[in-house]
Design a protein around this nucleic acid. Sequence first.
DNA 1: CGCCAGACTGCAAACGTTTTCATCGTTGCA
DNA 2: TGCAACGATGAAAACGTTTGCAGTCTGGCG
Lengths: 335, 335
Amino acid sequence: MPSSRPSLVQIAERVGVSPATVSRAFNRPELLSDATRERILATARQLGFRPSKVGSSLRSGSTRTLGLLLPTMSNPVFAACFEGAEERALKAGYSVMLATTGYDSRRERAAARSLLDHRVEGMILTVADPACSATLAELTASGLPFVLAYNESDRHPFVSVDNRAAAGDMVEHLVASGHRRLAMVSGPLDASDRASKRLDGVLERAARLGLPVPTHVSMPRHTAADRARLRSLLSSPRPPTALFCSNDLLAASVIAELATLGLRVPDDLSVCGFDGMAFGALMVPSLASVHQPSTEIGSQACHELLNALGGESSRSVRLPHRLCGGGTVARLPVD
Amino acid sequence: MPSSRPSLVQIAERVGVSPATVSRAFNRPELLSDATRERILATARQLGFRPSKVGSSLRSGSTRTLGLLLPTMSNPVFAACFEGAEERALKAGYSVMLATTGYDSRRERAAARSLLDHRVEGMILTVADPACSATLAELTASGLPFVLAYNESDRHPFVSVDNRAAAGDMVEHLVASGHRRLAMVSGPLDASDRASKRLDGVLERAARLGLPVPTHVSMPRHTAADRARLRSLLSSPRPPTALFCSNDLLAASVIAELATLGLRVPDDLSVCGFDGMAFGALMVPSLASVHQPSTEIGSQACHELLNALGGESSRSVRLPHRLCGGGTVARLPVD
DNA sequence: CGCCAGACTGCAAACGTTTTCATCGTTGCA
DNA sequence: TGCAACGATGAAAACGTTTGCAGTCTGGCG
């Protein structure tokens, strides 16, 4: 049981060949005679040798590692994105280094630097707002290829859905179900350009359809104040009949919140979300939502990044969203 | 805009000092005179230089990177575990390399090897069954320090909850709510020693409390056959009044399944899960479950691993579980 | 004035690979 | 038989750091 991992040279000595030959046994096996190759591979296996990526990275100047910088794994949306990206990366022989930011810009910068220090060859990341992200500025300055995921931007390559249009489609759906008085519930807007875009989409479509202007409620944390704001919204003279939450996690927690207020969804109030996370379909009643293909956002972002690394230009991509009707939206009688 | 990252020597030349001095500016700043240090740091900042971890890893023989090998990020349990581990690792100045296996032992082995190749200094992993895991055998042979997460084993260090006891407690709770005819629903047992242990716990406690032997239904995939098995269980002469699912994700999908059969939870049937994932509390009605502290399992596992790296011995730890009552379990009248 | 300690910095080797170039036989072909 | 081409292998430099050792210079103290 070799406590300290053997190195390529030790294998070379053991077999009686040069280090170059051992290296070739792993990287260009076809260059060696069958005999030598087998002899080397056998001893390697026997001693438990595998070539060190840190050595090879240094010499070759390529780590074959990609960085992934996402807000949190607690949101299944980003978890799926990770899995999509990981799978695509693996297929191309790349490893993935994941770091989460917890929506904290200090952590975000530190993590980005750490990834840079590890000499990842490219990065996939989601920032609060690409228009004013210090991390993004630093990244751009560094010259490292990167692709945004979920963010939309006209200055950087990204992979996302069309948040405006998607939100608009949900408004359309709500209206088709008989709703006219809507409200948008979101987290803090400066933490997510997605939420802003979705709000824009809601307001725009509502205007176009001639609805009363939807109220917007921000529920940064689940504090008493937030709950109070929600309650006061619902007890206004003409309360909304449907709550559009800017993401599914928020929608679920709003529904739970409503339950504690004695309000039944969808009987007393309709609620819908955004993301189309798998879990929403399992809720009873199932959560109405706009599905965005998170796994594919991850894999596609990775794909674009790999293209960029291959010298090709990487395009921005808006993947199709899909409306998921659900039991949380009531069909209102026309009155 | 420097397209190719400058190296330590280039900074050294630019500043007019030796490479050693530049290195010290970053690692042992207190050794340098204020003037030199500032001069170096300034040029470094200006040229966007940061010392390469691949260079330093090679020379120092330490990558300061930990490997994390988990089944999937789609299960919030593992996502939380990752976050716990990442945070703890970060605090100790370590980076984390995450790989998922998708419960596939081939991918598992390949991923473990990849992490080994990257020269991670230790590993945290969850395997199907530590008693017969090829990956674990290979890992042990390699001599790399590792800590199991969620698994329990008497041959390897691990961090988990006491699955047997935890499952037993849930049985206790069900009985206290008036249930006597129970059934256990799980995924394939050979994919998760946790599920086995939980089943053991259920059977044992049921026996001790003098209940009829709980039926066990395995629902590997959500195929028609699985659904049929569930239906036939429920239409047996004396059907169970409560379904204990071996994890929360499964519980949610079972509840959804029951809904399609026209069965209401908990009115027609009680259901509970295992994991205590945050989402369960948001379900309406909220999901009864046994909470295991996933984030802490991750951070604790990381902690133990760091201990091992520091030369101290790493103990196995069973963290406390906690019963989470929920609306999915009905309180039955005593008859 | 001489010596020594201490502060600061440089030299050079080493870490584990990859890769270019050269070397050495062999073989095929004219 | 002679020459070219080819197949197999080796020698050595390079990648970006760190670090033990040694060197220089300064100032303080006897």
